[in-house]
Amino acid sequence: MTYTNEMKLSFSAKSVNESFARTAVSSFVLPLDPTIAELTEIKTAISEAVTNCIVHGYKHGEGTIYIEAKITESGKLIVKIRDKGYGIPDIKSAMEPLFTTGGEEQAGLGFTVMQNFMDKVSVRSKPMKGTAVTMEKHIVRHLKNDRA
């Protein structure tokens, strides 16, 4: 597949960086001229995946979070968010709505939000090696005349 643009980021798994991560990815997709709703969906999905890396992947300590994003010729965003942390022992359960191992303050909706706000979500994880979440979203092309 040919990509029209690519970027890579790595940053400390600190909760203060959740905002940085979602803002960086949303800036990266701006040339595709997404709607405000599409941008909100992308930012929310990124925020969920990055929070998972911090709360679950690196629950025992510090680490680095890696983001790779690509844009295809057809206007699709492909974004991979990866940690080298604890891993998910049971991916199927982890993706069930309301399932959480994160304690009372976690809603258990991270994957539900990612799946609803993005077109495609896939998860690969190995215990003690880490987790990679890859998400895709096609940005609908808008006729210039339609935009206010």
């Binding site: 909100t40 930012k43 925020s47 969920e48 929070t51 303050e105 976690q106 809603a107 909706l109």
Partner: peptide
Amino acid sequence: QFMDSSGIGLVMGRYR
């Protein structure tokens, strides 16, 4: 202006 599922967790926790 922006919220992810942490905001939902905040509501659920305050409900409890």
